[in-house]
Computed example of a mutant assay.
Amino acid sequence: MTAPDWEALLGRTSFIELDARARAGALLDDGTARELCGPFDHLDSPWLEPQGVVPQSDDGVVVVRGRLDGRPAVAIAIEQAFQGGGIGEVSGVKIASALSLATRDNRDGIPTSAVLLLESGGVRLQEANLGLATVAEVCSAVLELRAHQPVIGVIAGALGCFGGMSIAAGLCTRLIMTAEGRLGLNGPEVIESEAGLAEFDASDRTLIWSIDGGAQRVRTALADALVLDDVGALRSAVIEAVRQGVPGEHRSQRIGELRARVEAVDPAHPPEPSGLAAPAKGAPPEGDG
């Protein structure tokens, strides 16, 4: 085993340790970032305070317009420290509206891409159906924009991306993760509470990351790139993902391939996580197309 380069490790700037506002700004070109609908606009949720929850003036979502590699872009970051990154009516509308404005720019001849920094446990329980409705709007806005310019998803922190926002992640043009990140439709605690400890032990961190972790999601082709927790590395990966442009076919459109992989798993005899790696490119399973 190669010895770690401690100087490189100690010299890097952790992306995970930044808050949402700093993460969004760190990805954009220096001096170009301009926040839209920031905390001084007081767009907080009207539903939290009546339920005994202190609201936040940006409702946990930061929208920053700027340039990425010299090109117009919008970075949208979910604040993981507020309500576990939960999406409510206001925060969801901020995301969907920012994506829709980027689509309008593209139609007006301004090629604007988007970066979604996804740290979310899903819809806030306090806002229930309102949150679900706005997540649907977010997904619709992602589909609309990705036809024009790349929508790049980034899942960096250990909170991960679950619930409705994991669907939005799956719709992104490309998805970038760190080894610390997690991705799943249902979180481990939800699975354990609904199906029992035998189905998923939410206290087993090794098990969780072997299934939901960034390395496994890249191996199973549900994410595209595994990147070091470093601001420079993540920015470079995002720039490269945008440069690749809009693919001829998005991952979410490869229904035959995805269905074949699900059907290959026998629920009565589930494989070990190490046995779930996606087949090599160039050899699509039967039923693809």
Rank of each mutant, 00 (worst) to 15 (best):
R23M: 11
S193W: 06
L68W: 02
G187P: 03
H42T: 11
L130T: 07
R65H: 11
Q244T: 07
G181S: 12
V218M: 12
R23L: 00
R104L: 14
L48D: 13
E127P: 07
R34C: 12
P55H: 07
C139M: 01
S97A: 12
I87E: 00
L222F: 12
L183T: 04
A202P: 01
G121I: 14
Q253R: 13
T2C: 08
R23D: 02
A156R: 04
G38E: 07
C172L: 03
R219E: 15
V90L: 11
D229A: 10
E127N: 07
S166L: 06
W6K: 12
N186G: 01
R104V: 07
E192D: 08
G245Y: 04
K281G: 12
G11C: 04
A81P: 00
R205H: 14
G122M: 08
D59S: 15
V218F: 11
S113V: 02
E49G: 06
I16A: 15
S120H: 02
R146S: 05
I176R: 02
A223Q: 04
E119P: 00
E257W: 08
A156P: 01
V64R: 01
A260E: 00
T112G: 05
E7M: 14
E199F: 12
G121W: 08
G153V: 07
D29N: 04
L132D: 12
F200E: 09
A77R: 01
G85D: 00
G11H: 03
S193L: 11
A202H: 11
E119M: 12
S97P: 00
A102R: 01
R67K: 15
R261T: 01
A156C: 10
D69V: 06
D41S: 14
A202C: 11
S100D: 05
Q80E: 15
A98T: 02
L207C: 05
V246C: 06
D204R: 06
A24K: 01
G25K: 12
A280T: 10
V154H: 07
L118G: 09
I211N: 04
D69N: 14
A179P: 00
R259K: 13
V123W: 02
T134F: 06
V135M: 14
I155H: 08
D229I: 06
A215N: 05
R107W: 08
G153K: 02
R146H: 05
I95M: 11
I239R: 15
G38L: 02
I78E: 02
E144P: 00
L276Y: 04
T220C: 13
I211E: 10
A156F: 02
I176N: 03
G70C: 04
T32F: 04
F162W: 10
R243Y: 02
D105W: 01
E89S: 09
I16V: 15
A268I: 07
L68Q: 05
P247V: 03
A198E: 12
P39A: 15
G25Q: 10
T134Y: 04
G282L: 09
A136K: 13
R146F: 01
L101G: 03
T206H: 11
V151T: 03
C172P: 05
E263D: 15
L117Y: 07
T220I: 15
F162A: 06
S140L: 11
A22C: 09
P72H: 06
V138E: 06
R104D: 14
D58A: 14
L183H: 13
E257G: 03
